[in-house]
Design a binder for these strands. Structure first.
Length: 387
DNA sequence: CAAACCGGGATCTGCCATTTAA
DNA sequence: TTAAATGGCAGATCCCGGTTTG
């Protein structure tokens, strides 16, 4: 051991790990290291219940060599550091083999230390399940880098497998599944039961509203809002209630709204949704419009409720100052998609060429930069057509 | 042909609280 | 009793362009 520890300082991390694991062939490590460590520590410190000795120190040393933020890791999951056995070397090698850089691996362990309690066999299996959805290891590594917890929080591979089968059975396309695992990876670590509850809840809503095809309703909502399954049914239910009470639509209209564009706002935090609803109403009333106008806006463009009060307020003011009416915005709400900065810039450019919004509408604001610029060139060349 | 419609793509974790398992 | 597993929460848009329509 002393020769080893003397050398590690000079060796690269990779080599030092390789060297250390020579004492235990990787294959054997999976099953036997737990025992080996146990035996090792108990032989040294017989009846001391919490042997501090070499085990914990070698863990700390390994983690430091890997560049892990040990302090942070200990704060997050102290229990991991009291374990008799951890598999940091195996996990490191595994991730390295999947193409994760040293920095990425360190980040993963720093943020989710429990990762080092997983065995290689377990990781291989889990990785294989993720690979049913992702085509490359790189994709998975990038998700782990972003959200280590999503991959490591559950050790239940059977549950993961069932989740994949369940989500597939809903009629979600492989593309949907791919996007879901990429953007809301936590969904796959949910218990199957939790996911099932949300789906059933959505189906119940459909039935409640007199819908004829609850499974399709649920599927539509999920594919339009990939985050829905990592929200609580309580949250979604409250949002549905809030919208139902505020918009006063018929059941049929609600059905269309929720599985259409409205799906995107079902996962907002309840308070946020309420606040935005209130602020929007205040703003509309202040501008001299009715609640019915607001409802029309929300129904055709529910994402308006996604916009924070300050942003929305300044965006509307900006449009109004540019000579556009609320009525026009209600007709073509997609303009609200664009940033206030963008809108402001475009309004200025259009004013310079004397564009008449009353005559020509505001659709021009809802276009990609390329298309807008092309249009603007034409306006400069043939201004008379628009004056 | 241009305008209008419409959906897609980027991205959404990291922490705390509670329940369950050993 | 401890650690592991699991559930839940807050946070808060913008842009592009393929396809359809007229």
């Amino acid at each position: 051991m002393s020769a080893l520890s003397g050398m590690t300082a000079l060796l690269s991390l990779h080599r030092s790990l390789t060297l250390q694991s020579r004492f235990m062939p990787v294959a054997a490590q999976l099953t036997s290291t737990y025992l080996a460590r146990r035996l090792c520590s108990s032989s040294k410190t017989n009846d001391d219940p919490k042997p501090p000795g070499t085990e914990n120190e070698s863990l700390l040393e390994n983690l430091n060599l890997m560049g892990v933020d040990v302090r942070k890791a200990q704060e997050r999951q102290p229990g991991v550091f009291r374990r008799a056995f951890t598999n940091e070397q195996g996990v490191h090698q595994f991730l390295q083999g999947k193409g994760a850089s040293r920095k990425v691996i360190a980040g993963i362990i720093s943020r989710y230390p429990r990762a080092i309690t997983r065995s290689i066999a377990h990781l291989e299996q889990r990785w294989g399940l993720w690979r049913k959805i992702f085509k490359t290891d790189e994709e998975i590594v990038s998700i782990l880098d972003r959200s280590p917890e999503s991959f490591f929080r559950s050790s239940d591979n059977v549950n993961l497998e069932k989740n994949i089968a369940f989500l597939t059975s809903l009629g979600l396309s492989t593309k949907d599944l791919h996007r879901m695992l990429a953007t809301a990876p936590r969904t796959f670590s949910n218990s199957l039961e939790l996911n099932r509850q949300m789906v059933e809840f959505l189906e119940d809503i459909c039935s409640e509203l007199g819908g004829k095809n609850p499974p399709l309703f649920a599927k539509n909502i999920i594919s339009r809002n990939l985050y829905i399954l990592i929200k609580s049914t309580k949250r979604v239910r409250t949002n549905i209630d809030i919208l139902r009470a505020s918009l006063k639509l018929s059941d049929a209209e609600l059905l269309v709204l929720f599985q259409g564009p409205g799906a995107e706002i079902l996962d907002l935090s309840n308070e946020y949704l309420k606040r935005n609803l209130n602020c929007l109403e205040l703003k509309m009333v202040a501008l001299g419009y009715q609640k019915a106008d607001m409802n029309k806006l929300i129904i055709s463009y529910p994402l308006v409720l996604y916009i924070g009060p300050d942003t929305l307020s300044s965006k509307l003011d900006c449009l109004l100052q540019g000579g556009i009416t609320i009525k026009q915005i209600i007709e073509k709400p997609k303009v609200l998609d664009y940033s206030t900065q963008n809108i402001k810039g475009r309004l200025e450019q259009l004013h310079k060429v004397g564009y008449d919004f009353q005559r020509n509408g505001i659709n021009i604001l809802d276009s990609s930069k390329k298309r807008f610029d092309a249009k603007l060139e034409k306006l400069k060349a043939f201004p008379e057509e628009y004056m």
